[in-house]
Amino acid sequence: MSTQSPAYGLWGLVLLNSVLFILFAFSFYKPHSRRDWRSFGMYSAFVVALFTEMYGFPLTLYLLSGWLAQKFPGVDFLAHDAGHLLEVMFGWRTNPHFGPFHVLSSIFIFGGFWLLAKAWHVLYHAQRESRLAMTGPYAVIRHPQYAAFVLIMFGFLLQWPTLVTLAMFPVLLVAYARLARHEEAEVLARFGDAYRDYQRRTPAFFPRFGGKGASRQAP
């Protein structure tokens, strides 16, 4: 599978994949405010960093090559498949594209995109009618779009972990949490008690299952 063509230096694929996944998110996020653009920009940076390593230059694999070669002798780390690191380390050692981490990652990624689209649809109509978005995903958590971005990025991490994206992830989590807090202050100022009531009823990021109890989403 990895014989005839090089696995890296495929800058066309870097470009194409980045554009595709950024466009996908753009279509269902439609940034308006500066804050929207910031959260969208952070997601985009993550996507570009990821695909640059996946198809362009595998920085992580180079940096870890010594350790990896020792730990996993016989794995060709210059081949694309080896970049699905979690599969190599803990997976089933078959075609990584059908291994447990890839499957899980796909669920997170497409689930995230689905949530993003759903939430956007609700928010769009709420904004047009100058009311609060409280139905659909907004009935479950207060910030479904941020949660969606986090789910998507977490999915990508499962699929193709890199040092850069691993380092970016916690930073993005904090940034999204802060954006969410600022946003709530604004919405509170505008909608007052209606929003305070909604806040009381609805958790910010982690849906309540049954009565109470946290979800499995990354912190």
Binding site: F21, S27, Y55, H97, F113
Partner: peptide
Amino acid sequence: RNKLVWIVFAVIAGFYLWTEHRAHLL
């Protein structure tokens, strides 16, 4: 319409995530 667009996007994205991402894709 939105669903359709979503599905088209998802199919292309899935195509990229699952197929062998090699030269023939270029």
